[in-house]
Amino acid sequence: MIESPVMDAAAIDAKISCVVLFDFDGVLIHGDAFGLFMRDRYKRSLMRKLLVLPTLPWLLFGLMVSWRWPVRTLVHISLLGISEQRYAAAAKSFAAQLVRRPRLFSRDGLLALRRHQAAGDRVIVVTGCEHTLVTGILEELGLTQLEVLASQLRPSWLGMRVKLHNVGKRKPQILASHGLQAWRRAYTDSSQDIPMLKPAAEAVLVNGTPKLCMKIEKALGRSVTRVEWF
Rank of each mutant, 00 (worst) to 15 (best):
T73G: 06
T73Y: 07
T73L: 14
T73N: 09
T73F: 05
L74I: 13
V75T: 04
H76Y: 00
I77W: 09
I77M: 05
S78I: 02
S78W: 01
S78N: 05
L80C: 12
S83V: 11
S83K: 05
S83Y: 08
S83F: 04
E84F: 01
Q85S: 14
R86Q: 15
R86E: 11
Y87C: 09
A88Y: 01
A89Q: 12
A90D: 14
A91Y: 01
A91V: 02
K92M: 05
K92W: 07
S93T: 12
S93Y: 03
S93Q: 14
S93E: 13
A95E: 09
Q97D: 15
Q97H: 12
Q97V: 07
L98T: 04
L98I: 09
L98Y: 11
V99G: 04
R100P: 00
R100M: 14
R100A: 11
R100F: 00
R101F: 05
P102Q: 03
P102I: 02
R103D: 15
R103N: 15
R103I: 04
R103P: 00
L104M: 15
F105Y: 13
S106E: 07
S106N: 05
D108P: 01
G109M: 10
L110R: 12
L110D: 05
L110K: 02
L111C: 05
A112P: 00
L113Q: 08
R114A: 08
R114N: 03
R115I: 03
R115A: 13
R115C: 04
R115Q: 15
A118P: 02
A118H: 11
A118I: 07
A119W: 02
G120A: 08
G120Q: 10
D121V: 07
D121M: 07
D121P: 02
V123A: 01
I124D: 08
I124M: 08
V125D: 09
V125P: 07
V125R: 02
V125E: 05
V125S: 04
V126G: 00
V126A: 10
T127L: 00
T127N: 05
G128F: 07
G128H: 03
C129F: 03
C129I: 02
E130F: 13
E130K: 02
H131Q: 14
T132L: 06
T132H: 06
L133E: 09
V134C: 05
T135K: 13
G136P: 12
G136K: 06
I137Q: 12
I137A: 11
L138P: 11
L138G: 11
L138E: 06
E140F: 05
E140D: 11
G142M: 12
L143C: 14
T144D: 03
Q145S: 15
L146P: 04
L146E: 04
L146F: 02
L146M: 08
L146H: 06
E147W: 04
V148S: 06
L149Q: 12
A150F: 03
A150N: 03
S151F: 06
S151V: 03
Q152C: 10
Q152G: 00
Q152I: 01
L153H: 01
L153E: 00
R154Y: 01
R154P: 01
R154I: 13
P155M: 09
S156Y: 13
W157P: 00
L158G: 02
G159S: 11
G159N: 06
G159D: 08
G159E: 11
